[in-house]
């Protein structure tokens, strides 16, 4: 049991909180036809973090969050500029911006001596959930032992705070968020600051992406933004229920994914565990696949497109 506490509890918790923090804004991103903003944001997190590291010389939570959020903001502004000035369709504008910023991040990282800190390209891409262990846990008593708790990996409180903040924001701004997602024009006429809401959604997604980044890397984060909300959309026709389902699916993906990655290979007689982050993405994909094949509301209703 000590083994579970030391090795598995914190990664599972971090996985669950990361998945939920991403799935919450993900619900609105997919309804706004901005699913790929999640893609773009998660790619630009890397240059943001590298620049923050170069500026401060340390890997600390606050500069990283600021750097990543700043990079996301720069990306959104660039995408908007290219769309508007160059009259380029949004998908292509996004493709130009996030690949270039990601390339810059990789190059900076390769040129920087980061051997002293935990930051390299491979981890940035794939994450390293398994390394987030709790050495100081000696038994269930450790859960109330301040000394042992102080030894928790700092990623856990960080993602917990981020997930909590995002959940509170989603609750408080539920009405304007829902209203401006459904009917932006009407929302503007009743005084909803639609542009600010849109930007705030992107900013919240960026914060979720950077907090989850340590654990699962920049690409698997995309699975957490998109798969649970997409599967949830197919389960229900009410936004409130959709968000609920997405949290359930996110939690399920994290737990099942981590367990399969850690213990699955042992069942097949193999010695080593496989990537937990990768497995979480794979499980979220399986859940989405099942939803696509069997969920009650998987198909569009014909009348929705009718003109009568």
């Amino acid at each position: 049991m000590d083994g579970f506490l030391q090795l598995s509890l914190t990664p599972i918790l971090i996985g669950i909180l990361s998945a939920i923090a991403c799935a919450l804004p993900g619900n609105f991103l997919i309804l706004r036809r901005q699913a790929l903003i999640g893609d773009a944001i998660s790619h630009v997190v890397l240059p943001g973090i590298v620049v923050a590291f170069l500026a401060t010389g340390v890997i600390a939570a606050l500069p990283m969050l600021v750097g990543a959020a700043g990079a996301a903001l720069v990306a959104v502004i660039l995408i908007e500029t290219i769309k508007r000035v160059g009259r380029i369709e949004p998908g292509a504008a996004m493709g130009v911006v996030f690949t270039s910023m990601f390339a810059a991040g990789v190059l900076l990282l390769e040129q920087t001596d980061t051997s002293a800190v935990h930051l390299d390209v491979e981890h940035a891409l794939m994450g390293n959930l398994e390394s987030l262990i709790w050495f100081d846990a000696t038994g269930w008593g450790s859960l109330v032992d301040p000394v042992a708790l102080a030894g928790l990996p700092p990623e856990l409180p960080r993602i917990a705070v981020v997930a909590a903040v995002i959940a509170v924001l989603a609750f408080v701004f539920w009405r304007p968020l829902k209203l401006s997602t459904f009917d932006e024009g009407f929302a503007a006429t009743v005084g909803v600051p639609t542009r600010t809401i849109g930007l705030a959604l992107v900013a919240a997604s960026a914060v979720a992406a950077v907090a989850a980044f340590d654990a699962v890397g920049s690409i698997i984060v995309i699975a957490m933004f998109i798969c649970p909300p997409a599967a949830a959309r197919l389960m229900t026709n009410r936004l409130e229920a959709q968000v609920g389902w997405s949290v359930v699916f996110a939690t399920l993906s994290a737990i099942v994914g981590y367990v399969l990655a850690g213990y699955g290979p042992l069942w097949f007689g193999a010695q080593n565990a496989v990537s937990a982050a990768g497995m979480i993405a794979a499980v979220s994909g399986v859940i989405l696949a099942i939803a696509c094949l069997a969920a009650p509301h998987r198909r569009r209703i014909g009348a929705a497109q009718g003109q009568g």
Binding site: V172, T181, F186, G191, T236, R238, L239
Partner: peptide, 23 residues
């Protein structure tokens, strides 16, 4: 608007009370 949005008729009408209800 996208009529595939996951919501019910009554919820759309309730949106009309936004200024009354606030956040």
């Amino acid at each position: 608007v996208d009529w595939d949005f996951p919501t019910r008729v009554i919820d759309v009408v309730l949106m009309g009370f936004y200024r009354e209800l606030g956040l």
